[in-house]
């Protein structure tokens, strides 16, 4: 089986399914709305993605797991990955930092700057 990786939010959603499976998709929508304030479409989107990854299956509206929670975490570390996506934030949002390309040398330089501060 291919390596399955989840983002932290996906993992929270997966926990809901593991905790209540077997669960109908309409019941799942209610649970996700209560816990994560998700809309119906968001729940469907994420559910389809996790089914595609081979973690869950949806048979005629009943969602069950292909891997139990214990099996999953035995095989995968809890280290979450960042989803890749193209494009960056709109220029007018107040963000923490921008995504910029820093070379390894530059990162090392800034690290040194921080370490040496106050000396």
């Amino acid at each position: 089986m291919a390596d399955i990786q989840l983002g932290a939010v996906e993992a929270r959603f997966a926990d809901i399914i593991w905790a209540s499976e077997p669960v109908t998709s309409s019941e799942l929508i209610k649970l996700a709305a209560a816990e994560l304030s998700w809309k119906r479409t968001t729940t469907y989107t994420v559910l389809r993605r996790l089914c595609d990854k081979g973690l869950f299956q949806n048979n005629n509206g009943v969602v069950t797991s292909l891997l139990s929670r214990r099996e999953f975490y035995a095989r995968h570390s809890r280290k979450y990955v960042d989803e890749t996506f193209s494009g960056s934030l709109p220029a007018f949002l107040a963000a923490f930092t921008s995504e910029e390309k820093l070379t390894a040398g530059e990162i090392a330089e800034i690290h040194e700057l921080i370490d040496r501060a106050g000396e």
Partner: peptide, 27 residues
Amino acid sequence: STALLECSTGRRPVSVCPLAFGEVGVK
């Protein structure tokens, strides 16, 4: 400062959007 650096790096570089100009260099 370390948090600033982490949020600016550690991720795959994205395609440079010409309009993502507003931010100041992390250094």
